[in-house]
Design a protein around this nucleic acid. Structure first.
Lengths: 216, 216, 216, 216
DNA sequence: AATGAATGAGCCTTCATTCAT
DNA sequence: GATGAATGAAGGCTCATTCAT
């Protein structure tokens, strides 16, 4: 991430990085300015100088994390000639790789977002528009193509069926791991999950795609 | 809830109730003993007297909330002679009604659990075993009956497909509502979602139920 | 002052005393809670516990100072049969003794009031009504008796002529002492000033008392 | 005021002006270098660069304010042939106009002086000598002329009788206004007060002018 | 000559906790 | 058994000041 921010103002940059990690680890209330500054090797008053406020530091940290923490166009690598099913598979795998992948030291980027989802602050708004909506739009296009002519409401719900499955492996991890045991959990690798979720989602979409003859 | 516990020591009981609401609303760090005691109409030192510690109070409050906050056997109302598909439908609806239902008055019980899922403390363990595992076992039985002979790993994933969809409407609510707009969100009532999730899940299970002829 | 407050809650009492002295010496902004607590031999958090706020401590300290810092009925010692001129003399002497008297270690009571006069806070209101208005009313009665039938406006101004002269020896002391030199200043003892101000004031009142024949 | 100083170094000049207003409004402790620099449109470090210190800035600001903030010889406009009584009247009116006049735009010059009178700092010395003593000398000449042959001590006290009355309408304003009500206070316009104080003062001087025959 | 960046001390406040009763 | 009083630690924040450029 250091390559962002043009390399200027390294203290400010280090502060943002440190703040992101601390906020992700302890939440807004739990994180302390002192710990952030210590981690950034900066003076205690540096936060006030650069951001004026703990709240504004949080705001900037979240935005910065999500602005530069991810590859810039993760989904463009889908071959343009690919059919919607193939594109859905890629979409799901990307989602899992980025959001669910635990082992990365960089996973705190998404911890921030999860915290925002549970109890949204002012940043959530900007974050949703800037980072999440583009992805969501892409997903809806895929689903629309898979099952044209569905009513809006069904479309929304189908998208959430995809996302909900993916997110669960992040949000419910701690409980899920205990439920099925660490070994069974370890076997649910990204490869397997991507395939599973994709196939389940395709089946779900198809179940609603031609409901005309079958009713329910 | 007052009839739970032993009925004795009403101060202790009120403290637990107040603590549950405060912890649910502000998290462990954000909640203050002062606010809890004020809400319970108790002395500031009462917490330390009755529980010794903020942490111990939290532990007890979470357990108490989930021990007595829910109807005791929510799923038994499924007619025993019902087929697995019908039981799945009931399971999903119950889940949605209890976890996603927005009537805030009692929803704080689940806020506590959500917070535990994101960043589990010591209570999570007991909570999972006591409250969550029974439900999960019931779900797995249903799925097993729907698609016998599946490997363990697939079974787990299919259960998570069901749960993930349900949980999303709680955890992702703030973001999802912004994404599709408040009106579209309002149209996703419990009735509709229960039906949607059930059908999607059934389709997903079926997709894996007879993979023999199709490979993948 | 220790005998006030019924002797209960000695810490609170000591805090008020210490706060009064610190606020008088350094003003509201300049005084620090640390210094107040150190002086009172109390913990730093004691102020928050007993008063909640620096501002409320200030408020209470000012009120307490003026409630118990002065003899309870300073002017009643005027012989009831005394004429208005004699009562004016007593009034002025009392004023000087209490407000101007420098050498007392207790003079900080009036420092507080002076600060309030310059830049009044919320306490000024209560203070004026409770402590100052009774005195002012007594003075006006005297002046009214000395020169009956004057218009209200003249009456006010004459009262201010008395008070203004007295207050000057307190408020303008530092400048005045430099202007005439310390020795000349020292010669302006309370006895002399009381006599001077009384006689000047009587002459002033008389100048307006019978303006009918003389016009101006 | 810009034309004062040297005309050079406009930043320094703006800093002095801004500092004067801030110090007058909030006192030495209450005023902040940040606010001063913001008001002057200067850099935060400009104060230390130009003056080295907050204290030195204060010193310079007070001096500058009183050096160039007032008309240069306000009292010379008294017609030289006027008698002492007339000159006293003019003196009092000028005093009231300059010190008591409420038009806030420029009144902060005197706020500074009032603050110095209450709790004198190092500047008070220079200020007294430079600005106040000349006026005081002029007043004493008038009084001396009105009542020749009085002892020094009486002379001083009579001067203070004049000044004390005038100053009261500035220093005691907040309390006095509450005591008699805003409407009654509004009726005490400069014209009325100048006349009142002059006449009272003349009567006072006369009371001491020929005490030989009357004793006391 | 002048400034943006950074510093360390200190502020008021709030917290969970303990103690004497 | 239960509480009002008091404590020490830490929190976020603001301040005047300095330094490298």
């Amino acid at each position: 991430m250091g390559e962002l921010g043009t390399g200027l103002d390294p203290t400010r940059e280090r502060l943002l990085e440190a703040a992101g990690e601390e906020f992700a680890a302890h939440g807004f209330d739990g994180a302390t300015i002192r710990a952030i500054c210590r981690r950034a090797g900066a003076n205690l008053a540096a936060v006030n100088y650069h951001f004026g406020d703990k709240e504004r530091l949080y705001y900037e940290a979240v935005l910065a994390a999500h602005r530069c923490g991810l590859p810039h166009d993760p989904d463009l690598s889908a071959p343009p000639e690919a059919g919607p099913a193939e594109r859905l598979r890629i979409y799901v795998r990307r989602f899992l790789e980025q959001v669910v992948a635990v082992d990365r030291s960089r996973s705190w980027h998404h911890d921030l977002m999860l915290r925002e989802m549970i109890r949204p602050s002012g940043v959530c708004e900007a974050l949703t528009e800037e980072r999440i909506r583009p992805r969501f739009r892409r997903l809806r296009e895929i689903v629309e193509e898979l099952a044209p002519g569905l009513e809006q409401r069904r479309l929304d719900a189908l998208c959430f069926t995809v996302i909900g499955q993916c997110l669960f492996y992040r949000m419910g991890r701690s409980v899920a791991e205990r439920l099925i045991g660490p070994q069974a959990w370890a076997r649910l690798d990204t490869e397997f999950l991507a395939d599973h979720i994709t196939r389940c989602s395709l089946a779900a979409v198809e179940a609603w795609a031609a409901p005309v003859e079958a009713g329910r």
